[in-house]
Design a protein around this nucleic acid. Structure first.
Lengths: 146, 146
DNA sequence: TATTGTTATACTCTATAACTATA
DNA sequence: TATAGTTATAGAGTATAACAATA
């Protein structure tokens, strides 16, 4: 083991990737604390929200939007269906796929989540002005694209 | 299932939390593509780098820095030790804990990772000016604190 | 009594591959 | 042949709880 200080060993210093990671970790900490331990996981919230905003979507397209496999989407929808939040509606024109839809119970849950989500957003942007928050989102978007 | 368009169901719209998440996903995509499939996982890279920058650190402190449990740190160090990157050095003053240290092989790997890391950083900041990159890191830091 | 490292165990998330039913 | 959904299985990551050695 070497004991002389070396500069190249510090992968975290001046790292945008690490800064994003830390913000993400903090964001999830706040999210869990606001939503509570019994709440839907972030991925399931996103799935529920996508189904609600794009009714009729099928599992394969949903999987692509979530960045997971079709097999993974089955589990996500299984759990949301078991909770009574989404429905698998059969499609007469293509009986291989389901038209996913959100139930009234799912809508109620989304309404509840929306309130908590606003509190969550308020807390993570606590130290930012409105302009800075907007700027941060723009800059993050430019990292996310490609 | 309701079919009227509703505003409150879209949890992703105008969401800083979701913007951070997307940037994080993209960042990891680029990281894996730059580092290659055989590389250390991000968590292990971070652990190796921390041990290198803070020689003598023990597993409990490392666990805290990584935000994982002591049991989790055991596994991380087990794998880095199996690769010959870190050593568990016994401490005469406190024989309960190890002074972790990086080996020459670990230093060589960090040197290699550092080069790839610079390429990674370049790619995720591709669409940002130098000033914008710095600004983004500052704003992210303000989200991460607290 | 408290702390460090460890083990055993389990749970979540995700992936791959093979299968079925439909197209 | 190709596609949508499903199942079985496995691996990575992490957590909790109980334990041994040491302080």
């Amino acid at each position: 083991m070497a004991d002389t200080p070396l500069t190249y060993v510090d992968l975290q210093r001046d790292s945008l990737g690490y800064a994003i990671k830390r913000a993400q970790v903090r964001s999830y900490d706040v999210l869990f604390s606001v939503m509570g331990p019994e709440s839907l996981t972030p991925g399931r919230m996103t799935a529920l929200s996508i189904v609600a905003t794009q009714p009729g979507i099928n599992q394969t397209v949903l999987a692509d939007m979530l960045g997971i496999t079709r097999a993974g989407a089955v589990k996500v929808i299984d759990s949301l269906e078991a909770l009574g939040y989404v429905e698998r509606n059969t499609m007469p024109d293509d009986r291989r796929s389901y038209a996913l839809g959100v139930t009234q119970k799912g809508l109620d849950e989304l309404k509840r989540l929306n309130v908590l989500n606003r509190e969550f957003e308020k807390r993570i942007a606590q130290r930012l002005s409105s302009d800075e928050r907007r700027l941060l989102m723009d800059l993050l978007e430019r990292v996310a694209v490609d």
